[in-house]
Amino acid sequence: MSYGAHDDQTTALALAARAGDVRAAEAFVAATQRDVIRFLAHLAGPADAEDLAQETFLRAMRALPGYEGRSSARTWLLSIARHTAIDHLRALTRRPRTADLSDWAATADAARTAQGPRFDEQVLINRLISQLDPDRREAFVATQVLGLSYLEAAEVVGCPVGTIRSRVSRAREDLAAALAADNAPHRHLRAV
């Protein structure tokens, strides 16, 4: 089965890493790290994404001997990332969370130094995506942000393709409604 040139290369790297090729393991991490962090940022929050990505890669390297290449390595890895995020979120519900002042300060500084509407639009989009129902959010991020096919997203999430299609469709509807509601006060102010 062919997954696409990039996924085929990533899968080849994973299989070579499974056979003990250290450089292939490093290249596999480098090739997939960005998608894993982006996926985790949307599932568990940007503040925890890098730590969860490290945990994902640790889990993946431990599980690599059992990887047989039946699905693309990217799909397999994002499935591990999803489980890592779920475990993290479950752990958070068991203990109270405190605000991290240094993260807040860095975010505020970054917001002050960012320029132009592109930053504002990205902040709005990320906020709206973060407010989606978790099932819809993970299906939307997997397909629309990371570019996985519906079949690949179904493998990552562990549900039928039709369910992914439905969740993405509903997420789009939710985002459109939220965007319209968010823009309504701004339209009123412009008319005045």
Rank of each mutant, 00 (worst) to 15 (best):
G66Q: 01
G69C: 06
A73K: 00
L78V: 05
R95D: 10
D103E: 14
T84Y: 00
H88I: 11
W76S: 04
R90F: 08
I80Q: 01
T93S: 08
R90P: 02
L92F: 03
L89R: 13
L77W: 10
D100C: 12
R90G: 10
A81C: 15
D87M: 04
L101S: 00
A81K: 09
S72T: 08
T75N: 02
I86K: 05
R95Q: 14
A85L: 04
S72A: 05
T75S: 13
R74L: 12
R94I: 00
I80R: 02
W76R: 02
L92V: 06
L77V: 11
H83L: 03
A99I: 15
R95E: 11
L101M: 08
R97P: 01
R97A: 14
R74N: 03
A85W: 07
P96N: 06
D100S: 15
L89Q: 07
L77F: 03
W76F: 01
G69Y: 11
T98D: 06
S71P: 02
A99C: 06
T84E: 03
G66N: 14
S71N: 13
G69L: 00
T84S: 09
A81W: 08
L89C: 11
R94F: 08
S72H: 05
T93W: 00
A99M: 14
S72I: 11
S71H: 12
R97Q: 15
T98E: 07
T93M: 07
R90A: 15
Y67T: 04
T93G: 11
A85I: 05
L89F: 03
D87A: 15
G66L: 01
P96A: 12
T75A: 15
S102Q: 07
D100R: 11
G66A: 01
S72M: 01
L92W: 01
T93I: 08
R82F: 11
L77A: 02
R94P: 02
S102F: 02
R95V: 14
T98N: 10
D87L: 05
E68T: 08
A99L: 09
S79G: 15
A99D: 13
D103K: 11
S102Y: 05
H88M: 04
D103C: 07
S71D: 05
R70V: 08
H83K: 08
E68W: 07
D103L: 15
T75G: 07
S72L: 02
T98M: 05
R94C: 12
D87Y: 14
L89M: 14
T93N: 14
S102T: 13
R74Q: 06
R70L: 10
T75P: 03
L78E: 02
G66E: 03
A91M: 08
R94D: 12
A73R: 00
L89P: 09
R74S: 03
E68V: 13
P96F: 02
R94G: 13
I86M: 10
G66T: 11
H83Y: 12
Y67F: 14
A85G: 15
S102E: 04
